[in-house]
Amino acid sequence: MAETKTIALTINGRDRKVAAPANATLLETLRELGYFEVKSGCEKGDCGACAVLVDGEAIDSCLALTWTVAGRAVTTVAGLSLGGAKHPLIEAFEKSGAVQCGYCTPGLIVAAQSMLKDTPEPDDDDIRLGLSGNLCRCTGYTKVFDAVRDAAAVLRGAESQA
């Protein structure tokens, strides 16, 4: 049986000590801890439903072993809005109707957040590129493009005010 070890990491802004075996994926660990917003859709990197931010960069948590994120900051969609106000991406996904069954949504929002760091003013093709690892079977992505553009504008506005 794989060795189990306790590692320290930050999840959604909270410092946590987490016991996990060597062969646990971050997806398995997060769901075990109750972060059910991190979804499992394929467990082989094809769908993006499990995407989380690690130090601000989106990865598929099903492809990361838990021990490898020791000392890092992990953020799920539920951790984006920390500090009161709803995160502009979440707000925009709601308002644009970019959510149908919602199973892909947490991963899409996390991927969009990661993409906007590199591309704060994305056009549709930038969004396509940034979200091509997130499968959505319901929406056809049209309203997702709207949502990400709207959120990007809000985030740019917030940036320029700060």
Binding site: G45, A51, I59, L63, L131
Partner: peptide, 12 residues
């Protein structure tokens, strides 16, 4: 790199 996987895969 642009046509490599999706964003999360490219990040890893």
């Amino acid at each position: 790199a642009r046509v490599f996987g999706g964003q999360m895969v490219r990040n890893a």
